[in-house]
Every structure is written in C-alpha cells, then in structure tokens.
Design a protein around this nucleic acid. Structure first.
Length: 429
RNA sequence: GGAGAGGUGGCAGAGUGGCCGAUUGCGCCGCCUUGCUAAGGCGGUGUACCAGAAAUGGUACCGGGGGUUCGAAUCCCCCCCUCUCCGCCA
C-alpha cells in the first residue's frame, strides 16, 4: 500500500511504476483511486460541517423544555435525512478507494532495470567457475532415482503431479542444508522462528500476495485459512498492528517452514525433477527496521550476502541478477535473484529471491514504530530473502558435485551435518 | 464442540445514553528545583483525514461490521480474537 498523499502528489511516477512492472490494470487503479479521492475530498468539508452542526445542536437537546424539544427534534431529523445520502456516498467512496489503493503496486526503485520478463533481468555479478566434467554429467533426477533417493512415481500416485519423495541420504542432505542455513543466520544475529503455515487473508493481503496471488495459494475454505507459499507471510506479519519502539529495531528473523504453491499456469514448465514442486522447505530471512531508505538498501545487500556466503560454502557457482520491472512483483521496490548453476539446465536456475519493500508491506500490516525521544509514529521498512529452499537447492548440489560413478561428494561445510561423511551414495553407473 | 468472562490510547486500567476523544497510573517529552549515577514540582503527550501559508479549526476512530436513537465506548444483532471451566484429542 502506498501513502495516498504520495499517490496524489506523484501520480505520474506511480503510474509509470506500474507500467514498468508491466501491470497496465494496476496503473489504471492510480487514476481510479485519484478520481475517488477527488470526489471524496470535495464532499468532506460539507459533510463534516453537517455533522458538526448536528452534533452541536444535539447537545442542546438536554437543556430544552419538552415543548421546545418537540420542534427541535423535527429539525434534527430533517438535517439527518439530508446528511444520510451524503454519508452513504462517502462510505461507498471510501470502500472503493481502499480497494483501488490496495491494487496500486509499489513503485520500482531507480536501480530496477527496465524489461518485460525474467529474460531481461540484468546480471550483477557471476561468482565461481562452472566445473568441467571429464564425463557426461547426469541430471539430479537420474542420479537420485539410480541411488534410490528419489521417487516421483509414487509421489504423484498419492499426491498428484509436481510432488516428490526423498529417501535415505538425500533426505538427510535436504535436512543438512536447511539446518546449515538456519545456523548460519543464527550466528549472524537472526532470531530463529517456527511460524504458522496456515494464515488468515489479512496476512496474505498485508504482505502483498493478495489481491493477485489467490490462484497460487492453497486455501482451506472451511476455515478461511491459506497455506503459506513462504514464511515471509507469517514472519513479516509477526509485529503487525504493533507500535514498536525504535530501540527495538531492527528485528532480524530466520524462519524454517514448509511452503506450498499451486503452480497454476505453469503446465509443461519445468516438469521433470525437483525444480518446480508444490511443496518444499525453505529457510527465509526477514528484516524489519526503521523507515530509512539507505538502511534498507544496506540490509538488502546484507541479506544477499548471507545467501551468497552459503552458496560459496557449498562450492556452487552462481550469479546475482537485478530483477527487471516486468519480472518484479506487485509489492517489491527492488529485487535481486540469485541463480545457481544447474548442469541439467545448462544454465543458471533461480534459487534465491531477495526483496526490499520500504513501507509498502508495513502500511498494509499496520506495522509501526515510534521514533525515539517522543518522535512520530512511522511505518517500518521490511525486507526478505531466501537462505535455502530445498529440494530445489539439491539440484545444484547433486549435479555439480556428482562423480562419474553416481556418488556425490559433500562440500566441507555440510559434512559436519552428515555425520562427517564426504561422499553420499554408492557407485551406480 | 459446550458454558462463562472479556477486547478502551505506547502499556496498565476507569468509564453503562448527551458533562467522554475518553478519569487515573506508568512510560515518554519540555521546563523548574535539587550537587549527584536518585527524587520532587509544573506543563505537555493518540492516529487518520479535511480546510488553512500558518496559528488553528473541523470530522472520524474505544476489536470488526450492521442496527436502535436527535445523540452510543456505553443499548441490540452478526463476526473475529483472548482468557477460564468442561468435553475430545496429538
């Protein structure tokens, strides 16, 4: 949610922002919102005056004699009837205004590249060297199935397509990565959280997933609850409705949770393997801090670095891209993706997504703090980034570290999480 | 699932139809006093919106929505949440 005053004063920038995100419908919401705002503001002085009059004269009632009261009452009723029509219109306008305002996307920051979709994201840096295999490298699903680590057939039989079952060492590796990610962030001062997986609509709206993301979301209609697609939703909502003290900020959280995505509209895309699945585990970092743009940008770099450090510890080549306008979501002001090298795709595949929002989510969540020394109440700034999403991260781990015989070497950093083992699996090829 | 109690400003906690945007305490801010890592005195201290250059004025908001009334934090209805007891259960 943007500040109405900001929209009013910068309509061109807000409209242009929506268009940069390739969201013409949302750009139209700017003009709709402003038209409603104009009408509302035109009528408010009159309505306020009528209310004031009615209120003041109502107070006189108590002092009148019964006869006087009779005549007075008639006049009051007349005034009220006249006012009611205006009030009806006001209520309608406010509801529509709120709806349109909720549709207006966050304005992409100056450092967001222009572009229509992910093909036009801009590479910022490329780290690590892509390994030269002395043999034909296999895809993770071939290795996994040969090792007895992966079963897609039984998974889809019991749960439908885009499901998987991990067995044995791969299940352990999955857990090792996630645990490593949590430990890394805890060591850096983040507070670990195990959040709710089912949340109310308010949390989905507050983080900006609704309206718009309903088709991506599994919903328990009976209870009016939604399965989260990322723990960003419950964790960012954690302090919603609160008035925090500036001294309590920043809040830094790391949450591990299951995530659920319907993946509607992706038929035929990434159908093989562990890349695009309905359910996965994710370790997510979330920062809530004061309303300071420079500080937000600094945090943004910090959370990207946290993820990069993990990938480097795993000896995985990756690149960081600045996400272009057309690939940016509604609530984000700027986003970096990290893409890790995946031999089976012969390319980099998205494994991380780091967003900064400024106060867009905070406004929707009523997430505020009071400035120190008796200052003003301000909306917070929020940010988040993946630390590790698994099983997707298992793709580069298996594929980059595979041996010719189908065994997989374990990066040093993860060995302690696997009972000290340096190799997983047995020769199968 | 059944029964009851309750949701008020940063927090605690009064307030059962007009004198309530709301007593009071804590916290916070300012000034004063005091010679010491403290205490005391006085004053101030919600948010949003509208009008205004500003001073200021106005309106709305006491969990959310609707209703009764000239007038609602206060009465009625629906919903949400919290707590206690009972039942069920991991």
């Amino acid at each position: 949610m943007l500040d109405l005053k900001f929209v009013r004063e910068n309509p061109d920038a807000v409209r242009a922002g929506a268009l940069k995100k390739r969201l013409p419908d949302r750009a139209a919401a700017v003009d709709k919102a402003l038209a409603l705002d104009t009408e509302l503001r035109a009528m408010m002085p009159k309505l306020d005056g009528m209310r004031s009059d009615l209120k003041n004269s109502g107070k006189e009632m108590g002092k009148l004699t019964p006869e006087q009261r009779e005549a007075f009452l008639g006049k009051q009723k007349e005034k009220k009837a006249e006012m009611q029509a205006l009030e009806e219109r006001e209520k309608q306008l406010r509801a529509e205004l709120e709806q349109q305002l909720g549709l207006i996307p966050n304005v992409p920051d100056g450092d967001v590249p222009d572009g229509k979709d992910d093909s036009e994201n801009v590479e910022v840096r490329r780290i690590g060297t892509v390994r030269e295999f002395g043999f034909a490298p296999r895809a993770h699903y071939d290795i996994g199935e040969a090792q007895g680590w992966l079963d897609f057939t039984k998974a889809s039989a019991m749960a439908g397509s885009r499901n998987y079952i991990l067995f044995g060492d791969l299940a352990l590796l999955h857990d090792a990565v996630l645990r490593y990610a949590v430990d890394l962030l805890v060591a850096r001062g983040f507070t670990p959280i195990d959040p709710p997986l089912l949340v109310r609509d308010a949390a989905m709206f507050g983080t900006g997933f609704f309206p718009g993301g309903e088709e991506q979301t599994y919903r328990c209609e009976k209870d009016g609850l939604n399965l989260i697609g990322t723990s960003e939703v419950p964790v960012t909502s954690l302090h919603g409705g609160e008035m925090m003290a500036e001294a309590d900020l920043p809040k830094k959280y790391v949450a591990r949770s299951a995530c659920f995505r319907r993946e509607a509209g992706t038929y035929g895309k990434d159908t093989r393997g562990l890349y695009r699945v309905h359910q996965f585990q994710k370790v997510e970092q979330v920062i809530v801090d004061v309303a300071d743009k420079a500080r937000s940008i600094q945090h943004h770099h910090e959370i990207v670095k946290n993820a990069e450090d993990m990938l480097q510890a795993f000896d995985l080549p990756y690149r960081v891209v600045a996400v272009c306008g057309g690939d940016l979501g509604v609530p984000q002001a700027m986003k970096y993706d990290i893409e890790t090298w995946m031999p089976s795709r012969n390319g980099y595949g998205e494994t991380h997504s780091a967003s900064r929002f400024y106060d867009y989510q905070a406004r929707r969540l009523d997430l505020r703090y009071r400035q120190k020394d008796g200052g003003k109440a301000m909306y917070c700034h929020t940010l988040n980034n993946t630390v590790a999403a698994s099983p997707r991260i298992l793709i580069p781990l298996l594929e980059n570290h595979q041996q010719q015989d189908g065994t997989v070497s374990v990066p040093k950093a993860l060995q302690a999480y696997l009972g000290g083992r340096a190799v997983l699996g047995k020769p199968v090829f």
